[in-house]
Design a binder for these strands. Structure first.
Length: 803
DNA sequence: GGATCTTTACTTTTT
DNA sequence: GTAAAGATCC
């Protein structure tokens, strides 16, 4: 969190920057700390009710501490109480504590709970926030030292992509062959590891654009500096660079942060680790809280290693395990623990509970004939729970992939069962919101080229490609922002008169809005901008079904702006906090991905789609090997441990994969659940895996002769591979050659169709869509075929049959 | 500049 | 099978 939403929201909070490194004063009588301390010699109120381990985690304040907090063991409580304790005992003032989280939500929650603990609002916890928001704050204060101005813009993924596309074009590379998204992903992996362009190992830049990856990265960083912009990765990498190149600045921050706390340490990437290491160098009062068993973000750069290596990195670290679970029933815990015990690379914890509940339901395992029926069965189950008086709010369906949601939504709509989808496109990512924001950005920041470009011709005002290209060329040649270039051009004969007039009007409008920035209330100005630019009108004219909703969103946007002090502070908030409060307070079932469910809990949890290929996901196995499988297993563990009272694991015998129905094999994770705590419900449906309970879906049988398609052969090999032998390739390396899978797929498919021999020019072939034809050119597995009816087409050989 | 056809991907996603 | 993005055509 960067900015508290409220009238006092400001881009900088002005607690004294440096020079306050002297020991903080003792708790002021009647102050927050004193109140929290409570009276007399008794333990302060906030320590009451902590179990011995939690208490140790709170009170071991000095030196490095690793708190291994299993699911539902009171992690957040420990973290917040620890902060309260540090403040209450006068060890540090609130602004001398650095507390980092991963999400804004977590930061908000923490702030909230600390306030509750000390009985009032905590003032001055200016350094409680996400890695990114704290990074931003540090950068804004020292922007000049890394070649930025303090009002730099933060680009989102969309802007990044457009920028990279421009760079790829400028380098005359084939956009098809070297797509911007791939470059973005590559640069992202580098930034995740804290690598600046000069530090990228030469071998890694080779994979992209004939070895020019590194060069493009450098070009991209260069462009960012010209635009006075950073991307999300820079919010981590640039502070590191700052600390390394300016030891004095680093020393100041080291002095400032007397105590450091890190939430969800298992999710930190290398860059975040380096960042923390630098800050903790001189003063190792660092407390990291995490759970290696819940590390599920390896695919976006998280290093479980960070948590596994903690004791090594911070010598003398105290390691405290929180294993007493306050959330789930014994059978659910048993199921989760038994499952996760199949992972090898873990620090090892065993959750337990004291609660003895003879009524506790076993974990239910059930199956359905296909995914359709799965949705139907779960829907029925939920309705029956509802009839028994269970609240829908306390029921969640957690799935591996978001495409699974569709069938549940369809079913629930027919049933009239209220549901809510968590995740999906977020408020600030919607097109109309991004357009509106682009208008605001271009108003506040005339140099924001990406914003300007986004809306020059939205709504359509006849400023086409040609005009924009001209502006671009001028801007690039003279190294000035687009808007400045446009301003110069309207005084020349370069542009056609009509476009010239339009452009002049547009620039005039921006100038006029900009002049009003300081005098008019920003939300009012925002409304004016959208009206005068014709943007609101554009959606009013739009006859499509979602237009009214979009107008509604725009209204909501203006409304939410009122909570901020200025346009600038609002924009800052938006770029870092890409979510808006969801309003839905209706009692409804929650649908979300397993990833989205981390940190949440529900009375009843449904876990559908436990099938090989989907969960564990084939791609995780393909690209991550054993490590990938273990991460999938952790995901299953996260899913199970979300449940307080009831967990239902489900699988379907048939599921549509890429549009084709495929028979599926029950997930290996089902076999890893403990028999004693599981209740296998006989499939009521049409046969299929009727004998599930008896044979426990013996895999060698399932993978028998029935599955002879190449895909299954492959899946089978992978299964063996992933569960047994070592997989040499690291996940990032595998990701780099993401094209590989497709190519491999083609090859496999090909070998089936043509039986291993190549097509020859002149051969007669048949194609499903184009009919008969003769081969004209053979290029590897790509054929150019002259079809009798459809004419000349390029096709993959796997799609034609020899006649 | 807009409509229509074609291509492509299709796990997870925060900041 | 489907949806979105891109390319091509008018």
């Amino acid at each position: 969190m960067v900015l508290p939403a409220g009238p006092n929201a400001r881009p900088f909070d002005d607690d004294p920057l440096f020079g306050d490194a002297a020991p903080p004063p003792a708790p002021r009588p009647g102050g927050i700390a004193a109140r929290a301390l409570g009276g007399g010699g008794r333990d302060p109120a906030y320590l009451e009710g902590l179990n011995p381990e939690q208490r140790r985690a709170v009170e071991t304040v000095d030196g490095p501490v690793l708190v291994l907090a299993g699911a539902g063991t009171g992690k957040t409580r420990v973290l917040t109480t620890r902060i309260a304790h540090i403040i209450a005992t006068g060890r540090a003032a609130p602004h001398q504590i650095l507390a980092v989280t991963f999400t804004n939500k977590a930061a908000r929650e923490m702030r909230h709970r600390i306030s509750a603990l000390v009985g009032g609002t905590v003032e001055g916890m200016g350094w409680l926030g996400t890695f990114h928001s704290i990074g931003t704050k540090i950068l804004r204060r020292n922007a000049e030292l890394v070649g930025l101005k303090s009002d730099f813009t933060i680009l989102d993924t969309d802007d990044q992509l457009r920028l990279m596309k421009q760079i790829i074009q400028a380098e005359n590379l084939d956009e098809k062959r070297w797509p911007a998204r791939q470059l973005a992903a590559l640069i992202d992996t580098w930034k995740n590891r804290g690598l600046t362009p000069d530090k990228v190992p030469a071998s890694e830049g080779r994979g992209f654009a004939n070895g020019r990856g590194q060069e493009l990265y450098a070009a991209y960083q260069d462009r960012l500096k010209v635009l006075n912009a950073v991307d999300f990765g820079d919010l981590l990498v640039e502070p590191i660079r700052l600390f390394r190149t300016h030891p004095d600045v680093l020393a100041d921050y080291q002095r400032r942060f007397r105590y450091m706390l890190v939430d969800e340490y298992q999710d930190t990437n290398v860059a975040q680790y380096l960042w923390l290491r630098l800050l903790a160098q001189s003063n190792p009062n660092i407390c990291c809280v995490g759970d290696d068993d819940q590390s599920i973000y390896g695919w976006r750069g998280a290093e479980v290693d960070n948590i596994l290596r903690f004791e090594h990195d911070f010598p003398g670290a105290a390691v405290i395990r929180l294993e007493r679970n306050y959330r789930s029933t014994a059978p659910i815990l048993a199921a989760a623990s038994h499952l996760i015990a199949h992972n090898e690379g873990r620090l090892g914890k065993t959750l337990f509970t004291d609660r003895r509940d003879p009524e506790a339901a076993l974990v239910t395992v059930a199956s359905s004939w296909d995914s359709n029926e799965e949705a139907r069965a779960i829907g029925d189950e939920i309705e029956s729970l509802q009839r028994k008086g269970h609240k829908l709010d306390e029921i969640a369906i957690l799935m591996r992939a978001s495409f699974q949601m569709r069938e549940f939504e369809d079913r629930f709509v027919t049933l009239g069962l209220p549901y809510r989808v968590v995740g999906g496109p977020r408020f600030y990512e919607r097109m109309e919101i991004r357009d509106a924001l682009a208008y605001f950005r271009a108003t506040v920041q005339p140099a924001d080229d990406l914003a300007f470009e986004r809306i020059v011709n939205t709504p359509k005002r006849g400023l086409g490609e040609a005009t924009i290209k001209l502006c671009h060329d001028t801007a690039r040649a003279r190294r000035i922002p687009l808007m400045a270039a446009a301003a110069d051009l309207i005084d020349t004969e370069e542009i056609k008169p009509k476009a010239r007039a339009t452009l002049r009007d547009l620039l005039g409008a921006f100038a006029h809005w900009r002049a009003d920035l300081d005098t008019r209330p920003h939300h009012e100005l925002a409304e004016t901008i959208l009206d005068e630019s014709g943007y609101t009108e554009m959606w009013r004219q739009d006859r499509s079904a979602d237009a009214p909703g979009r107008l509604e969103n725009l209204k909501e946007l203006i409304r939410s702006m009122q909570d901020f002090e200025s346009m600038t502070s609002f924009l800052e908030h938006v770029s870092l906090v890409m979510d808006a409060e969801s309003d839905a307070n209706q009692d409804a079932v929650t649908l979300m991905t397993l990833h989205g469910a981390k940190g949440l809990e529900f009375d009843t949890v449904f876990l559908p789609g436990w099938e090989e290929g989907l969960f564990p996901h084939q791609r995780s196995l393909d690209e991550g090997g054993r490590a990938g499988l273990e991460e999938e297993r952790r995901l299953a563990y996260v899913g199970l441990t979300r449940a307080r009272k009831r967990a239902y694991v489900w699988f379907a015998s048939n599921r549509r994969v890429h549009g084709m129905w495929q028979t599926s094999v029950p997930s290996r994770f089902l076999d890893e659940l403990p028999e004693d705590h599981v209740n296998v419900r006989e499939s009521g449906g049409a046969g299929g895996y009727g004998g599930y309970g008896a044979s426990r879906f013996d895999r060698s049988d399932s993978f028998g002769s029935r599955y002879t398609t190449p895909g299954w052969e492959r899946a089978r090999e992978r299964t063996r591979d992933a569960s047994g032998g070592p997989r040499p390739m690291s996940a990032p390396a595998a990701r780099l050659r993401s094209g590989g899978a497709t190519i491999e797929g083609e090859l496999v498919a090909k070998s089936v169709v043509d039986g291993g021999s190549d097509f020859t020019v002149g051969a007669r072939v048949f194609h499903q869509k184009f009919g008969n034809g003769s081969v004209a050119v053979v290029d590897g597995n790509k054929l150019t075929v002259d079809f009798d009816k459809a004419g000349r087409k390029k096709v993959l050989d796997s799609f034609v049959e020899r006649l």
